[in-house]
Design a protein around this nucleic acid. Structure first.
Length: 618
RNA sequence: GCGCCCGUAGUUCAGUUGGAUAGAACAACGGAUUUCUAAUCCGUCGGUCGGAGGUUCGAGUCCUCCCGGGCGCGCCA
């Protein structure tokens, strides 16, 4: 497949050519040696380099430069490169490779298709992406930000590569904490203090915290008061608190039972809580340009009816066993087993996750399930994945091996003080507030820089710039690491930021607008003849696009694509500065226009693949 | 106590399967605009890659130990 004449990726062409040369020169001794072709570390020496001679030399017991020389003698002519001689062997045995100038234009022309080199390889897979994970009755905060942004980007990357994706929002909508707040809201409504149709998410957030507090008995405080003889008044107060908490907890448990029995009055309250929370969640998704719909929500409640059956199934097949009164599934390689059922008969979130895996793999047909969740859950997922594989829930009907279950763990969002991102008073920052602040700040900058644009367009630009800033700042960092959130840095519009990428794109758009104004036509088949260093450099970055998208998918790392797009924007900016497009003439102008067009399409495609909005002007 | 993750320039971050002289950006300083958006470009300055051993022709990358930071560790979700 890679030997097609339409191949545009010089790495692939060189890998094949050098692979054949290695096999011919060194025979079986070389085995299936990789040609180790890479972009040249030192551009002044060449465009690419072959690093294969050194490891082969070790295996063959010959000096590496001798091996390199043999490879070169066995190398059949490669049309895209300048002829190689021993003079191109450098250092311990690097082979420096330089593309012919015309070849770069030809490769780029082969790359210049609507698909931009990204065709589906092999069978498309069904990929389930678990993202967002919002909890009922709680404001969304920065903790959800990364899961949503990274999850959406990964889903888009898989879609771009031709796979079928299913987004799943594993909503925390079940269990005792939800019952607590349901009960609390019921009390507020019953007493007439609140009207169900006027409840806001802020109200729920407050009630949630109050319910938590109501249900937490201060038994340690009471014990301490008795031990230190703090007086009858203090003891009585604490006793009343503990009694009250026990009652509240009992009420909550009753509410949970009523929910499980689907009692209409209780379900009505719960449904309101769910509706209010999900409306906010979808609003935030929409603002951020995260593709997440109401249909993608599969809450814990949707699995509740399956849990008992799962426990029975696991016991009957000998997968689960009793341990210290609880039902567990032991997982090879882990000290702690996966807890399926508490000694009091209740189920845990691991049980729900097992049910989710079963549905995703066996019902949805997932070949891969990717969890975009906080890295703190890594032990939990190791347990659940292990238990799911053991139980067969992770295996598609008729398949012989389990589907791939992967935790795309993300680090935390930190404030500039390197502590978890909070408000000054120590509260979680509401995601809605964070987004509106980004847009407001972006609006200030846009209004200051783009005075000649109409007000409504400025507002639209500000929204796009704010979202691009937030999302690019998140995506361009290594997913696994904590990252430091800074409005000033992400909106500075300088350096490695979302706005910088957008700026590169709008500058290209502007060239084409000007071209049209001046009656300069665009020939999308014009020969590309990169002669200036900036043109060569830009072309070589463009050719790396498809492989970079694939690498981002392979490693579940969107920041690889961010890095390439930043390099592309930088290469274009340098080109823009050094190579006049419209002021040039003839073939040069036509070729440069086409180079601009391809650059704009790759930039836009890359940004869209990451879920970052694009712009015509800014 | 056990486990996982992280440690790279003053700051924020890249660094591909182990490949040449570890790269950007910000900050600081100096330049560039009668020309397509200067929200830009070019240059200068800045590093014992947490430390010590080891494997290797070659280590930021792999192994061992140590230091520092974060997170997690059966009946919460």
């Amino acid at each position: 497949m890679s030997a097609q004449t339409t191949e545009f990726d010089p790495v692939v062409i060189l890998t094949n050519a050098f692979g054949r040369a290695i096999a011919q020169a060194l025979g079986d001794n070389a085995g299936a040696a990789d040609a180790m072709i890479a972009p040249n570390k030192r551009p002044e020496l060449g465009d690419f380099q072959c690093n294969a001679a050194m490891p082969l030399a070790k295996r063959l017991g010959e000096p590496p430069r001798t091996v390199a020389s043999k490879i070169l003698r066995a190398l059949e002519p490669v049309p895209i490169i300048e002829p190689l001689t021993d003079a191109d062997i450098a250092g311990p045995g690097f082979i420096n490779i330089r593309l012919r100038p015309e070849a770069i234009g030809e490769l780029l022309a082969a790359f210049d298709t609507p698909a931009l080199g990204l065709v589906c390889e092999g069978e498309p897979e069904t990929v389930v992406v678990d993202l967002c994970g919002v909890n009922l009755a709680k404001q969304m905060h920065v903790g959800h930000l990364r899961s949503m942004i990274i999850g959406d980007a990964l889903a888009r990357i898989f879609e771009r590569l031709g796979n079928r994706t299913i987004r799943q929002n594993h909503v925390g909508d079940w269990g005792l904490p939800i019952a607590m707040v349901t009960h609390k809201l019921q009390e507020e409504v019953d007493s007439g203090r609140m009207r169900l149709d006027a409840v806001t998410l802020d109200d729920l957030d407050r009630l949630y915290k109050e319910a938590q507090r109501d249900c937490t008995a201060d038994t340690r405080g009471l014990a301490a008061a008795r031990r230190w003889r703090m007086g009858p008044k203090a003891e009585a107060e604490l006793e009343a608190q503990v009694t009250g908490a026990e009652e509240a907890l009992a009420d909550a448990k009753q509410t949970l039972l009523r929910l499980q029995r689907q009692e209409p009055a209780t379900v009505r309250i719960w449904r309101s809580i769910a509706d209010i929370t999900m409306a906010e969640c979808l609003k935030v998704s929409e603002q951020l340009g995260v593709r997440l719909s109401a249909e993608d929500a599969a809450g814990e409640s949707s699995y509740a009816a399956e849990l008992a059956g799962i426990a029975e199934d696991l016991v009957s097949r000998g997968v689960a066993e009793m341990s210290e009164g609880a039902l567990v599934v032991k997982v090879e390689g882990l000290d702690q087993p996966c807890l399926i059922k508490k000694s009091d008969g209740g189920f845990l979130y691991a049980t729900t996750d097992m049910a989710a895996i079963r549905r995703r793999v066996q019902q949805f047909g997932a070949d891969r399930v990717i969890y975009c969740v906080d890295s703190r859950q890594s032990l939990h997922f190791a347990q659940v994945f292990g238990a799911a594989r053991r139980s067969g829930y992770a295996t598609k009907p008729g398949a012989s091996t389990p589907s791939r279950l992967e935790h795309a763990a993300n680090g935390m969002v930190l404030g500039e003080d390197h502590r978890p991102f909070k408000t000054r008073s120590g509260e979680n920052v509401k995601l809605a507030d964070l987004i509106s602040e980004a847009m407001e700040r972006a609006g200030n900058v846009v209004a200051a820089k783009s005075r000649d644009l109409p007000a409504d367009e400025v507002a639209a630009i500000a929204r796009a710039v704010g979202v691009a800033a937030i999302k690019y700042a998140d995506l361009s960092n290594d997913r696994i690491k904590d990252y430091v959130f800074s409005f000033d840095r992400m909106l500075s519009f300088e350096g490695n930021t979302g706005p910088y990428l957008l700026y590169a794109l709008v500058r290209i758009r502007s060239i084409f607008r000007k071209a049209q104004e001046r009656g300069i036509g665009f020939d999308r088949h014009a020969p590309i003849l990169p002669s200036a260093p900036a043109e060569r450099a830009l072309a070589l970055v463009l050719l790396r696009y498809p492989e970079t998208v694939r690498a981002a998918a392979k490693h579940l790392e969107p920041h690889r694509l961010c890095g390439l797009l930043y390099e592309l924007a930088t290469a274009f900016s340098t080109f823009f500065d050094a190579c006049p497009v419209l002021a040039s003439e003839g073939a040069t102008r036509a070729g440069r226009l086409r180079l601009c067009d391809i650059t704009a399409r790759v930039l836009a495609d890359g940004l869209t693949t990451l879920g970052i909005p694009t712009l015509e002007r800014m």
